[in-house]
Design a protein around this nucleic acid. Sequence first.
DNA 1: CTGAAAGCGCTTACAG
DNA 2: CTGAAAGCGCTTACAG
Lengths: 344, 344
Amino acid sequence: MVGIEDVARLAGVSTATVSRALSGKDHVSERAREKVKRAAAELGYVASSSAYTLATGRHRNIGVVLPFVDRWFFSVALEAVETVLIERGYDLTLYNLGDSESQRSKIFNDFLLRKRVDGVLCIAVKPLEAELEALNRTGKPVVGIGGPIKGIRTLAINDYNAAYLATEHLIGLGHTRIANIGGLPPTEMHFMQPSLRHEGYEQALIDAGLQVRPTWFVPADFTISGAYHAAKQVLGDPRNSPTAIVCASDEMGFGAIMAAKDLGLRVPEDVSVIGMDNHDMSEFFGLSTINQDVRGQGRHAAETLLSVLEAKDDEVPTNIEQSTEWNVELLIRSSTARPAAGGR
Amino acid sequence: MVGIEDVARLAGVSTATVSRALSGKDHVSERAREKVKRAAAELGYVASSSAYTLATGRHRNIGVVLPFVDRWFFSVALEAVETVLIERGYDLTLYNLGDSESQRSKIFNDFLLRKRVDGVLCIAVKPLEAELEALNRTGKPVVGIGGPIKGIRTLAINDYNAAYLATEHLIGLGHTRIANIGGLPPTEMHFMQPSLRHEGYEQALIDAGLQVRPTWFVPADFTISGAYHAAKQVLGDPRNSPTAIVCASDEMGFGAIMAAKDLGLRVPEDVSVIGMDNHDMSEFFGLSTINQDVRGQGRHAAETLLSVLEAKDDEVPTNIEQSTEWNVELLIRSSTARPAAGGR
DNA sequence: CTGAAAGCGCTTACAG
DNA sequence: CTGAAAGCGCTTACAG
């Protein structure tokens, strides 16, 4: 392995000069810089990052913690974060909690404390009290997507308002029989999005003077198939079926659209469906939705973390509680329309 | 930050003893071990990984390179790799190539050479000649999923055989009018799967004495919507439509099924559809497919890399060309059946 | 502008 | 079994 000494020897300077010339941080004569660069290139020299870290205390590495990577929201957010980090010269160490309790505990109690990262970004993961405390003892900044989380900076949409807005759109179109397919309570480990989204739906109905029917709320997990079955259930009722459905995610919206079709119902003529997310496939399904710009959130969170890092020497406090609300917008496509004149 | 010296002081031993007691690799008296463990726990001591790396040359970190993370195959493989690594005490540094050329070049020419990882795992990424050479100069083992790749160990299914098998299944059911929705040539940056899968389809037809019609091969990108439009195209032809479709991926299969439904065709009564992958949603769609067990491949590749790493001191060669074929199996669900007696 | 040297925090032969 | 000390490969005050 070629080291800094080899470069120094070949360039005829000291290792200090090599370090300065290559980092570009200190003044070095033009001539020395040239010699060093040439020598480094000739030898294919790359500084050892562990030696760099030991000497400087900086890792140029961010730990990203998330519950899954094989679901749309997480993989998209991850990709956005990665793009920002690579651009800024940072590595990304992935910590996927998975569904085993032991993996989560290893990550929080061992991996994250190994002094490998300059900061931690949690994507839709809410650290437990003790986990956060251990993290904070490392003195590293932590930023979260989703929240709020006590004691750290977070970025999140307002789930309640988003669901309210989606429901309002349907009400505005003239719907009065509006169902909701949403989160199952047992699935609600990560924040309260599922229930917040349900509450937003309910309040919108109440504020419009519409009836809230318990049978029109169908819990389902956040998958296409979960929502498909739930939608068949509500839409199939011959006496009491709704004319519109608010789904707690776009993937659930896809399932609802497919269920409607399989029941011989047309979307939006017979049923309107609205989702939430703006999934990459929503355009294809013509799904009206609430756009939460996941990529934008990922980028913003990564940039926030990096700026805390870079300002650290100055007086920006490492971890403060600060919940930033990320804007959402209603995106109307072809899955929502006025209800048929005489009902179905 | 509490360091090894603090632990040594509190335990009343030397730092050497602390190191030995904590690593468990060397003999230490029971009494000393106890004192050290207690002191370490009390102080919340965690060894600095950069100091460990500098002293030992080991990183306990693997670099994983992939072209996307927001697509099913990649995110699933990534998750499987991560699970194995965490279990074995390794970190995972993510290198997502993305679609910008500059990001790819940064990753291969800078990040991957920073001496951060013990080895590299490429998921469906074929390094260029020069990229591989630079990697090899670091002396780190490289393992790939997908291949073969000159000079490294790879794990891959036989795409040709997989497509042949899928087509054979349809032929066995009695179909003679079989279309193929497959990869667009311009998309074929990563290996030759798309064309291999097309060739397997074609050869199966030829071997069965069936006609290969150019209009029955419709290129599309590997997405649901791409395949949806392609399938509408072939199935919509009033004179010459096929009774079965071989899709080059399950997501394409979903698109084909949706297209058939939207054309008023029943699957499998009017059209049979078979995919390839065994996507998590294939069960829901009832899609017959070729199961390639992506999670199994990810785990296997990760374990291969770790065993090369751990055997390194002995005489296992770091990088040798070795292409392991991963088995696939035909999975018959409800999207394929005998063609209707009189055609449609 | 440049070099000698200390120091970052560990591990591990080498002695004892 | 245990400790003193060298060494891993950098960066950066400190002098000059």
